[in-house]
């Protein structure tokens, strides 16, 4: 199809929307509100993802070596495990030194021990928190590894929580998307019914399916984009309010700064708006193309 035709059909879609502006505005308002909720789910989702990542960065595995194990060999084996980001080596002597510092005055106790009882240790940083238990299991099987420790219990619970909420927010987003799809389909169907004769004549004079469908697809995209833009502004506004209040209310939770969330949310909403328009119009016209 030529660009100029596409432009003409886009104009026709816009005119269709204006011709039923009451209906169109109602639909856009409802979709906007739904998209605000969807946007907040996205905000939650992005924050949880980053929370998971930052937890992983804070959480470390400590791998204790057996006496006489080859430090280099174990180090290489650890490095080769999938998901391992980096290693830090703490020698027996360093470990003892740290312990001394931690004990402070009572460090005299250590003098009672003849030999250094502490093992060589690798501190392993991992890419994602979910990977920690798996990496721990793998690390235990390496020859020369005595023991692996990490905050197993608490980590498991936190990760389960993050996963559950992530899944719920995705489910919520899907439900909202389907609900808005329903609104778009019904709104455009009204236009389609009002244009039934035009569609029939266009078919008769040899219009392709794409030609007939185009105005309705554009109408859907306009609706989706208008709603998504408004919703993005509202979601941005809401997020700024949250950012202002959150540090006092929930100081223990790290919240992503505005610039790390709002652009993604805006782009996602605009993308979903376009998708909504395309799918919605496709469904509404399909029956009349048969």
């Amino acid at each position: 199809m030529k660009i100029i035709t596409l432009g003409k059909l886009a104009g026709e879609g816009m005119a269709n929307l204006r011709a039923r502006s009451g209906m169109g505005l109602t639909a856009i308002t409802i979709i906007t509100l739904a998209f605000v909720v969807l946007g907040l789910f996205l905000v939650l989702f992005f924050n949880l993802n980053s929370l998971g990542t930052s937890l992983a960065q804070k959480l470390q595995l400590r791998v204790f070596l057996t006496d006489g194990a080859s430090i280099e060999t174990v180090g290489e084996s650890l490095r080769s495990l999938p998901g391992v980001e980096g290693l830090e080596f703490v020698s027996k002597a360093q470990a003892l030194e740290e312990l001394r510092k931690q004990l402070g005055e009572r460090s005299e106790l250590l003098d009672l021990v003849e030999e250094n009882p502490l093992p060589h240790t690798y501190i392993v940083r991992v890419r994602e928190a979910e990977l920690i238990p798996g990496i721990a299991e793998e690390a235990k099987t390496i020859v020369g590894v005595e023991e692996v420790v990490y905050g197993r219990e608490s980590l498991g619970k936190v990760l389960d929580f993050i996963n559950t909420v992530s899944i719920l927010s995705v489910v919520g987003m899907v439900i909202i998307f389907l609900a808005t799809l329903f609104i778009v389909v019904n709104t455009i169907r009204l236009t389609v019914i009002a244009r039934k004769e035009e569609i029939a004549i266009r078919k008769l004079v040899g219009a392709t399916d794409a030609f007939i469908r185009a105005p309705f697809v554009f109408e859907g995209i306009f609706m989706g984009l208008a709603s998504a833009s408004l919703a993005s502004l509202l979601a941005d506004f809401t997020y700024r309010l949250v950012l202002e209040r959150a540090p006092q209310a929930i100081p223990f939770l790290p919240i992503l700064p505005r610039e790390a969330v709002v652009p993604q949310v805006t782009l996602s909403l605009l993308g979903l708006g376009v998708l909504l328009g395309i799918v919605g119009s496709w469904v509404s016209v399909r029956k009349y193309l048969r």
Binding site: E197, E198, A200, I201, K203, L204, G206, T208, D209
Partner: peptide
Amino acid sequence: RRKEIPYLRRRIGVVFQDFRLL
């Protein structure tokens, strides 16, 4: 095929009893 039908119709003119004008 379904895709070819429009091109067939462009070579056929049709007139009805009820005119079917917009």
